[in-house]
């Protein structure tokens, strides 16, 4: 589904990613772990199409297309979804209206019929329950005045409605208490299937107790230095990043 080769990315002259190779197949869940500043979030943002980053080398193929040539919205319509580390507040933009517009933009892109307000309400009913969202949050402006946990649940709720092929979860666990973490993980797990791939970007192993990955990659200083299965995450938790880095060098 996704094939990243030798990806180099810089921002404002600073090289952040220094040659990433990663292949993700449909149905797989990959975790990308790494210390602060290693480039994890940059990778997620670049895949979603953030325009501030400069691709200095490498290529990314998504569903046999050149991902880096696609506009932000084209990527979304082709099934890429980024759950933001810091979801953006949109004062004055109603949450339901926003999500319905987004869904219809994607349906239109795919040549499907746009859905009306009533159909939309039917569609989101179960998903609101799944994410344990208060109805009032849907009537409020997008993310405005939401608590940290509400923002993250709102991200996963959007994901549940938009049903992406490739979900990128950028530190979705940060700032969540255990209960909220369970709700979010439950939401993500319920969407796992053979066609959908997920990339989890996280600092801590904690999330991976709830969303168990097929592969774990350790990203340090813009490069993947180690890859393995879920046990790598446990090892990382036990030894800390420094030792893993040293061992990788040795």
């Amino acid at each position: 589904m996704l094939k990243i080769e030798n990806l180099h990315v810089s921002i404002g002259g600073n090289q952040i990613l220094k040659g990433i190779d990663l292949e993700v197949k449909a149905g797989e869940t990959h975790a990308i772990m790494g210390p602060n500043g290693s480039g994890k979030s940059t990778l997620a943002q670049v895949l979603a199409g953030h325009e501030e980053y400069e691709i200095t080398d490498g290529k990314v193929e998504y569903l046999s297309k050149d991902l880096l040539e696609m506009e932000i919205e084209e990527r979304a319509c082709e099934g890429i979804f980024l759950a933001f580390q810091y979801p953006v507040e949109l004062p004055g933009v109603n949450n339901t209206y926003f999500l319905k517009s987004a869904l219809n933009a994607q349906r239109k892109y795919r040549g499907e019929k746009e859905i009306d307000a009533m159909e939309f309400i039917d569609l989101i009913g179960d998903k609101i329950k799944l994410l344990n969202l208060k109805d009032s949050l849907l009537k409020r402006p997008v993310n405005e005045g939401f608590s940290g946990g509400e923002k993250k649940r709102n991200e996963i709720f959007q994901m549940a409605v938009l049903e992406p092929k490739l979900a990128l979860l950028d530190e979705t666990d940060s700032g969540l208490d255990i209960d909220a973490l369970r709700v979010v993980a439950n939401g993500v797990n319920s969407m796992r299937n053979e066609e959908r791939a997920t990339i989890l970007v996280t600092h801590y192993q904690r999330l991976l107790n709830y969303i168990v990955p097929d592969f774990v990659h350790v990203l340090v200083d813009g490069k993947i230095i180690n890859s393995g299965d879920k046990n790598l995450a446990l090892e990382l938790e036990e030894k800390g990043y420094d030792r893993i880095v040293e061992e990788a060098k040795a």
Binding site: F84, A102, Q106
Partner: peptide, 17 residues
């Protein structure tokens, strides 16, 4: 960026804001 990452094109995103 947030709006576009959900599938709305630049013009639609501008209009919403």
């Amino acid at each position: 960026f947030y709006l576009r990452s959900r599938g709305l094109n630049r013009k639609e995103a501008q209009q919403i804001l």
